[in-house]
Design a protein around this nucleic acid. Structure first.
Length: 769
RNA sequence: GCCCGGGUGGCGGAAUUGGCAGACGCGACGGACUUAAGAUCCGUUACUCGCAAGAGUGUGUGGGUUCGACUCCCACCCCGGGCACCA
């Protein structure tokens, strides 16, 4: 009988929906295991095959853990605030609330069709006021602890649309919507003081199990460097120019100074060629920081009439302005040492500045200035002038300053608006709702105005893993006991594209909340891995505009959820980017059908077949390999190992049917990958219960070891033959075998080898040059 | 430009971490079954020469270390991810 994936998958999904085998008892005495995927942004495009990849991987881990006896929390939710939904609202007039409802309904249906073992009773949605009440409450904790403040920040500004733009909306320096040139404009923004946590974010990495490249990305992003702050007095002025350098030892070779175009001194200094300098600065303002760093010809202008004194050798040296120096890093000014720094040298060569290779100042006490630690990390711009985000719960009172919205008034709900478009003055659409904006100051009861900025999308995703432990709590963001039992996340998998920002931001929130006693553990994630992207067929990123988006629904319809799950795990190494191949699912779909055929035969014969020793041995090797590969996320080789096993079973099938005992163990191995098929066959061979809580099979090491191996015969390092022999063969015996080998013999005749290399149980190599 | 990955048959990839390069899958070719198509099953499949035994070449490019290099070292080229208002 042919396998009907439609019928079988629906059948078990219904049973799972009813029985809720994955519902977590958060008061259990069992050891817990918390596995987490990055919750999806429910876009209108529907589930991406990339979501399927990550969710399947953690589903496999979660299912294996349940079989190993853990109380597993594998939750799901929606990271639903964000630009695409807002832009859709602007375009169509459909409210983001409505669009989100539709999109999450679609995602929910799609995820359920894949049989993921989520605890659906813990579903969360960042745009649900019951959820963002606590996002707002947490923001107020930052505010009350002095970590949220307002500051002036440069943003991308499109004068034509009179809107602030995300970097993504700036294409080649122009506005993505109207094409006009984008300017940089200073705007007052809410900031989170993440820099205060730079060292804690670095130190915390020592205690967690993250992939090395992920740790490296975090460390480099924080970018701690230890150096010196040195003052260069400006000639005939009271001003002193502060610079930060990690190479104070090169100070004798500093032949000029460079200021960033935004450096405050430029307006204060007496510059002879002021007009020229201003023209230059105006030109650089159009460039983004990244454009400035690009490997182009360096530009700059000398500040004529300005000199500084090198405090080490008292030489008077010139001062330049150039955009290769960034205002946001260090002091926004550098001492240029062209003999030691490549960028300085390029600049010096272009402008014919002296390059002096002087000896290093190796005595630390001779260095001027004082030691200082510097970070690349900048504070986090936390406000957006947009509609679709959590309203920042602050009231601005002319006499009391910034006053938090009282806790009893949370959640501060997003009001209904007529237009989702930011206002011509650049303020969020919320600013137009006068009734909402004009409020009494909670502290002095005088006239006051609400903050109209909203939070960035990152806000909701910075603490969602905490909410999963207690998603329905309306008195606290989460119950302490539940946090204590279920946190930290034991294994967090997500995209490599999220390992700097989201990972850093959410660690920051958690560490801060730990510091003020609100969460029990400092680091939120015990282990973090990352998967590669699934690209379109041809290796390009999947995008609607390219027409190469693969819809999982179509694949499920044609081949079934199990075949899709297996294919996505089989297609290549989990941590690398991989192009989609429609044909690939054919292979795993055949695999599913062949297993079904075998299962049906086993069901017919019931337990009559006896255990085949050869198959038993291969099974134990398979159990070992699959068990180990899952832990290393080498799902592709785990599946190929199971394919080899099935091939062997089919070979044996021509003589005898595989015993029920062996087949049962195989089904347990397959279950995390293809749960519908495995559960169906489990029932077909006479079991009533769910596979979810059966014991994960153990292998007998003795049965996994081979007694024989292929001895490789080499002459001068070149392969000339192999012989299958018993393990533990001596060098003497190997030499004898080689001399008896019909090909190798010819090379060894009349020659005494200069050297013989023997690697036990592997090879023998004769060097006869 | 800076940080993190990667480059192996027609394609996706495997290789016990220095020891038989190409497991497994797709595709292609040949065969069986079928009136036929599809499905399924069996066989072949890195390239070159050879009927064969076998020989030579081969893991982005160039160099190096080693008895032996996809694996280690140096230089370079190309591709992917991130670069702070995408999520």
């Amino acid at each position: 009988m042919k396998y009907n994936h439609h019928k079988v998958e629906k059948k078990w999904q219904k049973i799972w929906e009813k029985d809720k085998p994955w519902q977590v008892n958060d008061k259990s005495k069992k050891k817990k295991y918390y596995s987490l995927i990055e919750f999806p942004y429910p876009s209108g495009l529907g589930l991406h095959v990339g979501h399927v990849r990550s969710s399947t991987a953690m589903d496999i881990i979660s299912r294996k853990r349940r079989m190993e006896g853990y109380n597993v929390l594998y939750p799901i939710g929606w990271d639903a605030f964000g630009l695409p939904t807002e832009n859709y609202a602007i375009k169509t007039g459909i409210s983001p609330q409505e669009a989100t409802k539709q999109n999450t309904a679609n995602f929910r249906k799609q995820l359920k069709a894949l049989g993921f073992s989520f605890d659906w009773d813990r579903e969360i949605d960042t745009t649900d006021p019951k959820y963002y009440k606590w996002t707002q409450w947490l923001f107020l904790q930052f505010f009350k602890n002095g970590l949220a403040y307002k500051d002036s920040v440069a943003i991308n500004w499109c004068a034509a649309c009179s809107t602030g733009l995300a970097n993504e909306e700036v294409v080649g320096g122009n506005c993505d919507r109207c094409g006009s040139e984008v300017e940089r404009k200073l705007k007052s923004q809410w900031m989170l003081r993440i820099t205060a946590y730079a060292d804690k974010l670095l130190d915390g990495l020592a205690n967690v199990d993250f992939l090395d490249e992920i740790k490296a990305q975090q460390q480099n992003w924080i970018g701690r460097s230890d150096g010196r702050l040195i003052k260069f007095p400006i000639v005939s002025s009271k001003l002193e120019l502060d610079i930060f350098t990690t190479r104070p030892d090169t100070i004798d070779g500093a032949t000029y100074m460079v200021l960033a175009p935004e450096h405050p001194f430029i307006s204060e200094l007496k510059i002879k060629n002021k007009k020229e300098v201003e023209r230059y600065i105006k030109k650089t303002q159009k460039k983004s920081d990244r454009e400035r760093q690009e490997n182009k010809v360096k530009t700059g202008v000398e500040l004529k009439g300005v000199k500084v004194t090198n405090p080490y050798n008292n030489k008077k040296i010139p001062v330049w302005v150039s955009d290769y120096v960034l205002v946001g890093y260090g002091t926004g000014a550098i001492m240029a040492v062209p003999a030691h720094d490549e960028r300085d040298r390029e600049f010096a060569e272009k402008f014919k500045l002296p390059i002096e290779d002087r000896p290093l100042v190796t005595k630390k006490r001779e260095w001027p200035g004082k030691s200082q630690v510097n970070y690349k990390l900048k504070d986090w711009v936390f406000s957006r002038q947009r509609y679709w985000g959590e309203p920042i719960p602050i009231i601005n009172c002319s006499s009391c300053g910034f006053v938090p919205v009282p806790e009893k008034d949370l959640p501060l709900k997003l009001p209904k608006v007529d237009s989702y478009r930011p206002r011509p003055d650049g303020q969020s659409p919320l600013a137009s709702i006068t009734k909402w904006v004009e409020v009494k100051c909670p502290s002095c009861k005088g006239k006051a105005r609400r903050e109209t900025d909203t939070m960035p999308n990152w806000a909701g995703s910075s603490w969602y893993f905490l909410r999963y432990t207690d998603p329905k709590n309306d008195r606290e963001f989460a119950d302490q006991k539940k946090l204590k039992y279920l946190m930290p996340v034991d294994w967090y998998n997500g995209g490599m594209e999220h390992v700097t920002l989201h990972l850093l931001y959410s660690r920051f929130w958690n560490i801060f909340l730990h510091d003020i006693g609100l969460v029990p553990y400092s680091e939120p994630y015990q282990k973090r891995t990352a998967h590669g992207m699934i690209l379109g067929e041809g290796g390009e990123k999947m995008a609607k505009s390219k027409g190469n988006v693969v819809n999982p629904d179509d694949i499920i319809e044609k081949f079934g959820a199990d075949a899709l799950r297996l294919y996505e795990m089989f297609m290549g190494p989990f941590d690398e980017a991989i192009p989609w191949d429609d044909q690939g699912v054919v292979g795993t779909s055949r695999f599913v059908n062949r297993i079904y055929d075998i299962g049906m035969k086993v069901a017919q014969h019931q337990s009559k077949a006896s255990v085949d020793k050869e198959l038993e041995k291969l099974l134990h090797q398979t159990i070992k390999k699959v068990s180990q590969d899952i832990e290393l996320m080498r799902f592709n080789t785990a599946i190929s190992t199971m394919m080899i096993f099935i091939k062997e079973v089919e070979k044996h099938n021509s003589r005898t049917v595989i015993s029920q005992k062996l087949f049962s163990d195989f089904l347990k191995l397959l279950f995390p990958f293809a749960p519908h098929l495995s559960q169906e066959l489990w029932q077909a061979i006479g079991n009533e219960d769910l596979l979810d809580f059966k014991d994960w099979p153990k292998w007998k090491e003795k049965l996994t070891v081979e007694e024989r191996f292929d001895l490789v015969l080499q002459v001068n390092g070149k392969l000339r033959g192999t012989v299958t022999v018993k393990k533990g063969l001596s060098k003497k015996e190997a030499t004898k075998l080689a001399h008896g080998h019909k090909v190798v013999k010819g090379y060894l005749e009349d020659q005494k080898p200069k050297k013989v290399i023997f690697v036990p149980d592997r090879l023998i190599n004769f060097i006869i040059y």
